[in-house]
Nucleic acid binder design. Structure first.
Lengths: 145, 145
DNA sequence: TCTATTTCCTTGACAGATCAACTAGTGTTA
DNA sequence: TAACACTAGTTGATCTGTCAAGGAAATAGA
């Protein structure tokens, strides 16, 4: 998950700290989602599809919004379809595309999760002031750019 | 990899930014390691074992230093052993333990990687001043704590 | 209009993360 | 010393990430 601990250069420490923080964040939300039987990525897909509305999105579009390689998305969608949370059908204008839509069940599930997730957001940054939060956003956005 | 993009609360943006940065960092180092046929985690294990010296470390110890669940470590070590980079043998004092040691081949490989990795560290934070770097370390270390 | 290329997506294969269940030694204690 | 719990590690199953290869529809060019 994370680079190891032997620390010499200060940069290494900083990088390590960023990676560890991301790791804690991921675990935190994974924990929140576990009772619903959703993984973090599945949840992301559902939220993206909720945002897309009833007309749905083609597979690649979903992938792009997740910064994710396509093959993973296909199989992610496979599982969500099996669970009845997503439905897919060929697009008529462009028959290469598969339009993915969230089902009503997905909307219900997401609605249940909204509060816990917002709370999770709060908990994640509970130790930072609003200003520090902005600073953190700024600094991380400038990493490797 | 990352939470999706629909953004309402500022906390969400910050969290997203941290996750994305970690993602870029991970990809960056993965890229550096690819020519050597090592994954990031394999590299971590080898560095840990290099740090441990010739007497090696039991499997669980390796796992702890990686913030990693044990089962994963076992299989990680399996692959490294197949590649001839790690050797394992039962500990005589406590026959439950497997002592894992880096081989000479591993040391050679790591030596080759030291410079590229240090350069990778530099590149990662190239856009931050030393002070900003410290700030980033501080802020991330306070996330979810 | 027919081939060549591109685009969208799927499949296969393998590394890795995580959970649950299990084996094999160790230690403890009655 | 026999029974019990504990520790170290492995194995199996499922999900995800990534690469490489490929199919099928759309598009471009001759």
């Amino acid at each position: 998950m994370v680079l190891n601990t032997p620390v010499e250069q200060p940069s290494k420490e900083t990088i390590l700290s960023v990676l560890k923080a991301a790791d804690r964040i991921r675990r935190h939300f994974t924990e929140i989602l576990k009772p619903c039987g959703l993984t973090l990525q599945q949840f992301n897909v559902l939220r993206i599809l909720r945002g897309a509305g009833p007309q749905g999105l083609p597979t690649l579009e979903v992938g792009e919004r997740m910064i994710e390689k396509t093959p993973g998305v296909t199989r992610l969608l496979d599982r969500l379809e099996e669970k009845g949370l997503v439905s897919r059908e060929r697009c008529h204008e462009d028959r290469r595309q598969q339009l993915c839509t969230r089902t009503q069940a997905a909307l219900d599930l997401l609605a249940e999760l909204d509060e816990p997730i917002v709370q999770g957001d709060r908990d994640t940054l509970a130790n930072l002031t609003a200003q520090e939060e902005n600073e953190l956003k700024d600094l991380t956005s400038r990493i490797l750019r």
